[in-house]
């Protein structure tokens, strides 16, 4: 069984968000890049399954220019066997899914994070599944493999479910798929340098959406403070002023 983990290269979660060029582009100056947090959890689970002997190979894939290679090396250091970079600037979710479709065909399980923390598209996993015409399961918070059979946990309204599903499948994963993201050890970092990072050319695809402008949210009004001994007043304000309870 082979797993492909889709990796998005995103700004560190503490990055102060700024824009350049009259607010038409994200300002990348001084930004630390990381593996998208949900992708990192997906990768951690894939590596755990490999260590448990349930999976033979874990490959990571990213659509991006050379700038994303340190992030892919980190994924290799965490424990992926191979990395693939589709060499092009990601334009929109559909464009990215089309690029990934060319490298995703030979895998049994494709893991995608529930969203990327930059443009919050929540779309690449589902689009890829549709392009490949295979099943997808979203809101996945657990994956086990026994004798080649997948057992998938997902959240639903008011509870959770355990599913069985045939491969190939795209699993769109969220918090819970792995407990903690794995931090690469020194040995992993050394080994990562020798692991293959294959660069493949982009395929023709037209984006279907275009970012035209960005803006920061307006500054928030000051917090209305209520005295510690007057919590009742807070409930009154929420009920009568804010009308939210």
């Amino acid at each position: 069984m082979k797993i492909l983990v889709l990796i998005s290269n995103v700004p560190d979660t503490t990055t102060k968000i700024r824009f350049t060029g009259d607010n038409t582009a994200f300002d990348t100056s001084g930004v630390q890049w990381i593996i998208n947090p949900w992708d990192e959890l997906a990768l951690t689970r894939a590596v755990e399954l490999k260590e448990a002997g349930a999976v033979e190979k874990v490959v990571v894939a990213n659509v991006g220019e050379k700038i994303t290679e340190p992030t892919l090396r980190k994924a290799l250091a965490v424990g992926a066997d191979e990395a693939i970079r589709v060499d092009t600037e990601p334009k929109d979710s559909y464009f990215v899914a089309k690029q990934l479709a060319q490298v995703a065909k030979d895998f049994d399980i494709i893991l995608a994070g529930i969203e990327a923390s930059d443009y919050n598209g929540s779309a690449v996993g589902g689009m890829l599944a549709e392009i490949l015409d295979i099943a997808s399961v979203s809101a996945v918070s657990g994956l086990n493999i026994e004798n080649g059979e997948l057992s998938v946990n997902r959240d639903i309204d008011g509870g959770s479910q355990v599913l069985s599903i045939n491969t190939p499948v795209v699993l769109i994963v969220q918090k819970g798929i792995a407990k903690e993201p794995r931090i690469p050890a020194m040995r992993g970092i050394m080994m990562a340098r020798k692991k293959p990072l294959n660069v493949v050319p982009a395929v023709d695809a037209e984006p279907r959406t275009k970012f035209v402008k960005f803006e920061l949210p307006p500054p928030k009004a000051a917090c209305k403070m209520v005295d510690e001994d007057n919590a009742k007043e807070l409930i009154r304000l929420l009920h009568e002023e804010a009308k939210v309870i």
């Binding site: 979710s93 689009m127 979203s138 959406t209």
Partner: peptide, 24 residues
Amino acid sequence: SHNNLGKAIAPRVAVKLDAGLVSG
């Protein structure tokens, strides 16, 4: 809706319809 189910289905529908998707 931009919730679990919407996020699961809308991208697939967008591909089927050759439609652009804007989420959130």
